[in-house]
Write a protein that binds this DNA or RNA. Structure first.
Lengths: 148, 148
DNA sequence: GAAAAATAGTTGCATATTCAAACTATTACA
DNA sequence: TGTAATAGTTTGAATATGCAACTATTTTTC
């Protein structure tokens, strides 16, 4: 029964971690001035410099239609722009506007600071272990096709 | 620059973990037959046996109004019921119906299995370390008031 | 003990998110 | 050239969310 207890503990810990990371309250606004969905998209676009709708939807695990709407909202707020790819006019190239880049940079800075603080508050001798462990957990989760 | 690199790594790992755990795609349906929001509420109610709206909202980090509506949906689908607390008629006691209990049990079973599988696929000699590390991470995150 | 304040929830309003399905436009291919 | 495949958009319908205004009940205050 040892294993069952431990896996339960794992579940609870991850459940709490989800909560703590504020993922649950996928609320309207996140730390910054846009919604979570838009924030995730913005960060993804910022990292890629430019990206197609398909790729963006893929990377965020969303339907194209959902993605298109979220991009709409970002375009409306002048954070990103759409350009037809001249090579293959079926594709749309999504990239940050100047205003979007500003926000992106701001988000990246905040997130960096956030994780720097977290990292700092871990006992130095445990830091390596924590990093390694998340990687291990990540691999373990990766093999599991969720509860479907 | 060592620390910065490591905290970046930490950020990326957590980012990926979020994705992997399917938290990002807070989609309509989760593993079971209800929405994520409803599932979270259902599990919380099931664990508490009975709980007030306030407590429920608090535990899920949601507005009372949002919570009230989610509970509405659960009530409509006959998963939970509301009862006025006779002690203090301002309060509402929320609890599972028979049908709700069934679903709750099902969800708990699936989740248990899911995490059991994850746990099993971690190398035995690393298991303890992973559990400990998440706890450490949790504590570290706990001290950080997000990026607000 | 009555008026005021506090507390628990609900409802109205506006917006965002999500998926599925139908649709348009463009390119590949047979 | 006509058909199939691919990339995106639009529409429809349901849910989610926060804020603000509101009702009902209990507690506090004078």
């Amino acid at each position: 029964m040892r294993k069952i207890e431990a896996s339960k503990q794992l579940r609870e810990l991850i459940r709490m971690l989800e909560r703590k990371l504020g993922i649950l309250q996928d609320s309207q606004l996140e730390c910054c001035s846009i919604t979570m969905a838009q924030c995730h998209a913005l960060v993804e676009i910022g990292r890629a410099k430019n990206i197609s709708l398909n790729e963006l939807a893929e990377s965020l695990n969303l339907e194209n239609s959902t993605m298109s709407r979220t991009v709409n909202n970002l375009v409306t707020n002048d954070f990103v722009k759409r350009d037809t790819d001249p090579q293959d006019r079926r594709y749309v190239t999504i990239s940050l506007t100047e205003k979007g880049l500003e926000l992106y940079t701001d988000i990246e800075d905040r997130m960096s600071q956030f994780f720097k603080n977290i990292y700092s508050s871990i006992q130095p001798e445990k830091r390596e272990q924590v990093i390694e462990s998340i990687q291990i957990l990540l691999d373990a989760v990766g093999e599991e096709p969720c509860c479907k």
